[in-house]
Structures are given as structure tokens and as C-alpha cells.
Computed example of a mutant assay.
Amino acid sequence: MNTPEQSQLGKTSAYVDQYDPSLLFPIARAPKRAEIGLSDSRTPFFGADLWTAFELSWLNPRGKPQVALAHFTIPCETPNLIESKSFKLYLNSFNNTRMADAAEVQARLRADLAEALWRGSGHSGSIGVKIVGQDRFDQEMVQELDGLLLDRLDVECTRYQPAPDLLRANHDEAPVTETLVSHLLKSNCLVTGQPDWGSVQIRYSGAQIDQEGLLQYLVSFRNHNEFHEQCVERIFMDIWSRCQPIKLSVYARYTRRGGLDINPLRTSHPGALPANVRCARQ
């Protein structure tokens, strides 16, 4: 089983510019889920990791460079996630590779990523891959997450490692349905310690969650080392267990690094995924 420490994170890497799917480095989700009391076969959430690649290029049959954006939808049911630097190196391996057209690029991306994401499980599955060509760049919109902004609150923050005891809800009053947003989410890469910046949207129905405590809790991730997907699952599980909502969705949009952004969604109930529309900081 691959571990984060075995990846190319924090190491000098040669850029391969000829197509090479072996560059993808899957990491099992199970160990970090076990830390928050989950097994892969029993998770109380659905969801996906929505990736955007802003630096996708290849050569057409005549050797002319092509550029595009790509959106990836990776179900959270996959046994593995893909370490982001390996994803970047893999995408760069297309740079000097001749492809017939965007459809061939899309097919290779889908097949290679699906193989890595399901590797070692004895199962297979598909992922979503959408390539956006230059003719559609003007359709890629920028908008902010909707919801009541928690950052308006003037709270004292003194804890910078995850502190779920800050979470509380009023179970003596009638249940509410709210959407809350904060742009103060920050965590660090699990291996390198480099900062990861994000915005988070929390939708829930149930006992009203104390907003000051929730904001302090989100800020408490500031010095925490964990991958994006793992942070969102930790936030979901802490709110789920501490506040016991009837329904809950946690959606984070992280700023890009190396031309990639990662935007995990975890929700207690199945439904349509949000549009992969980037925020201003992305």
C-alpha cells in the first residue's frame, strides 16, 4: 500500500513530457478514515472530489499544441485518492505527446485515473472527465459559495488544531435549515506542511448550530496537516457526531496548486453534485 511519504511530495521531480500513466500515485483512503472512526464499507456520507485542471496541453497530429481545462468528478467511494503532485506530473506527461483529438485525451484520462483510483480493491468503476476547449473558456464562470457568512462574527480564536469540542447545537429549540459559509479555512499539506487555503459551505437541517463555535472550530484547522479530502471528512464527522443534524453537507473549495484545485463534497443524503464553478480565490 502506498503511503504519502513515498510520494513525490517535497522531493525534486523531473518533468516527464511523454505520456506516462505510471506517474499517478494512489493513496488508500482507509487509514485516515480509520482515524475518525470510519471503515470504507460503513461511511455515513455520499459525495465526490471535484478537481479542476487548469494546465492541460497536448500536441495534435501535426505537432501543434492544444490547451484546455478539465473537470474531474471522483466518487468518494473509490478506495484510493490520487496524490495531487503525481496528478500534476501525469498531466504534464501529455505536453509533448501527439493525440488524435480531445476525445482521445478524455478517454485516456478517464481510463488511467479510474484504474489508479480503484487499484488493489478487486473492483472497478468510472469517474467523470469533462474537457473544456478554448472555444468554451468564456463559459467558465466565477462565483462565490452561497450562504450566511460566518466570518462576519467577531470571535476570539486561540486554538489551531482541530477542536471538535467547540461544536455545539441547541436541541431545545425547533430544528432549522441553514447554509453557512466561511473563507477562513486553512490547513497544511500532510507531507510538506505547505499551506492549503479554502472556503467551506455547510448546509444542514436540525438543531441550530452555534455559529461562533462553528467558526472557531473551522479556524482550528489552521495548523493541521491533512489532505483536502481528509479535512472535509473530518469536518463532516465532527459536526455529524457533535451536533447530530438530520441532514448535513460539507463542501470545500480549495485554491489551486500546480494548476490543480480540489473541491471535496461530503453529504448525508444523495443528490445532484454542485456545479464545478470556481470561486474568486481559485
Rank of each mutant, 00 (worst) to 15 (best):
I36K: 04
I36H: 07
G37H: 00
G37M: 12
G37A: 05
G37E: 04
S39Y: 01
S39C: 00
D40W: 00
D40E: 07
D40I: 02
D40C: 05
S41R: 13
S41V: 02
R42I: 01
T43R: 04
P44A: 05
P44D: 07
F46W: 15
F46K: 15
F46E: 05
G47P: 12
G47R: 12
A48T: 04
A48Y: 00
D49P: 10
D49T: 03
D49M: 11
D49V: 01
D49C: 08
D49E: 14
D49L: 03
L50Y: 01
L50S: 04
L50W: 02
L50C: 04
W51T: 02
W51D: 04
W51F: 14
T52W: 03
T52D: 11
T52P: 10
T52F: 00
T52K: 11
A53R: 11
F54W: 11
F54C: 07
F54V: 03
F54G: 08
F54R: 15
E55D: 15
E55H: 10
E55V: 06
E55T: 11
L56P: 12
L56R: 15
S57D: 01
S57Q: 14
S57R: 15
W58Q: 01
N60K: 15
N60L: 07
N60M: 12
N60Q: 09
N60C: 11
P61M: 02
R62I: 00
G63P: 13
G63Q: 15
K64T: 09
K64E: 06
P65N: 13
P65M: 02
P65A: 05
P65R: 15
P65H: 10
P65Y: 01
P65V: 02
P65D: 10
V67S: 07
V67P: 03
V67M: 07
A68L: 08
A68F: 02
A68W: 01
A68M: 12
L69W: 09
A70T: 09
A70V: 08
H71D: 14
F72M: 14
F72V: 13
T73P: 08
T73F: 02
T73S: 13
T73A: 03
I74L: 15
P75I: 02
P75V: 00
P75Q: 14
P75F: 02
P75S: 12
P75H: 06
